[in-house]
């Protein structure tokens, strides 16, 4: 890799092309600004498009009704409750597994070969397409372990999908604790586990929590893995337990987007608004936790 030598830049400066160079500088400034503007404009257009499509469709009846063959009678009650079931299941498995792995890697594993293997493995898992996790869930949970196209199978699949995110966020939270805290506890004769239990985890909880919430908000929006688990289903009941079949919001949206009749596009947009509101509030909580505890630590 070659940096232009200062001499070559100076030579150009001396050539008296200052007018051209200033002109080019301004032109590219405009181009760079316009990439940012285009990105932001894309976001604004996307949101505006959804809001105009959904206008007038999002009401209490829409939230409390089941899906119907008529768009004006349809609602998102089943996928809303289904999403809640799946996300709670995901959280129950993700938090102990993710935090446990992070604590192990940061506090106990040292530089062993096993820990390097796990670390490399996590980095690779983070890049695996979500539909491949769906195939994994279909192959292992639905077909091999035979737990059916159920809430449990969906939750376990999403757990494996977001586990790398939680592990990496938790590792960063643990790493950011000043070593002096640990040293003080060791000096009092604490075992490693006591240090983790009384010093590391309480200090790292805000960072871990915001990582967990961000991971769950990723899981809420995922359609592809759930599609592999449950298929397209017309569900007009809410899950009664982890063994129930279910649908989730993104899948219901997909279902409606693919219906050509006009009204279904509008209720798809209305369901998207509900999904975005859920994501937005989760992200707000994550940001609040981070800011709140950052301030209190200082």
């Amino acid at each position: 890799m070659k940096l232009s030598s200062p001499a070559s830049i100076a030579k150009k400066a001396a050539r008296g092309r200052t007018g051209y160079r200033t002109w080019r500088d301004r032109l590219f400034y405009l181009l760079f600004v316009s990439s940012v503007v285009l990105g932001v404009a894309g976001l604004v257009t996307l949101l505006a498009n959804i809001v105009t499509d959904a206008w007038g469709w999002l009401d209490w009846q829409f939230i409390t009704s089941y899906a119907s063959r008529k768009p004006e009678l349809s609602g998102i009650f089943a996928p809303l409750i289904g999403t809640t079931w799946v996300i709670v299941t995901t959280a129950l498995f993700t938090i102990p597994l993710g935090v446990g792995t992070a604590v192990y890697l940061e506090e106990f594993a040292g530089e062993s070969r096993f820990s390097r293997l796990v670390q490399l493995n996590i980095a690779n898992l983070a890049g695996v397409p979500s539909i491949v996790y769906g195939i994994l869930g279909l192959g292992i949970f639905v077909l091999l372990l035979d737990i059916g196209r159920s809430v449990l199978a969906g939750g376990l699949t999403l757990t494996l999908l977001v586990l790398p995110i939680v592990i990496i966020a938790s590792q960063e939270a643990i790493r950011s604790i000043p070593p002096s805290y640990r040293d003080a506890a060791y000096a009092m004769g604490a075992t490693r586990w006591q240090v983790v239990k009384t010093i590391v985890l309480p200090q790292a909880i805000p960072g871990i929590m915001s990582g967990v919430i961000l991971a769950l908000s990723r899981a809420i929006g995922e359609a592809a893995p759930i599609l592999m688990i449950s298929g397209i289903v017309f569900i007009t009941f809410v899950p009664t337990g982890p063994g129930s079949s279910f649908t989730v919001l993104p899948l219901q949206i997909l279902n409606w987007v693919q219906q050509p009749q006009g009204g279904f596009q509008s209720i798809a947009a209305a369901a998207i608004i509900c999904l975005l509101i859920m994501l937005l509030s989760m992200n707000a909580v994550a940001i609040w936790i981070r800011n709140h505890y950052q301030r209190s630590r200082q």
């Binding site: 446990g100 192990y104 890697l105 106990f108 996590i122 491949v132 994994l136 192959g139």
Partner: peptide, 25 residues
């Protein structure tokens, strides 16, 4: 506790093996 934690770390390795097995067979 260390054994339990090691088991949780093993899950991520098992995930990779699970992906390969469920695809390859």
């Amino acid at each position: 506790v260390v054994w339990l934690l090691r088991l949780t770390a093993l899950i991520s390795v098992l995930t990779t093996i699970g992906i390969l097995v469920s695809l390859l067979r």
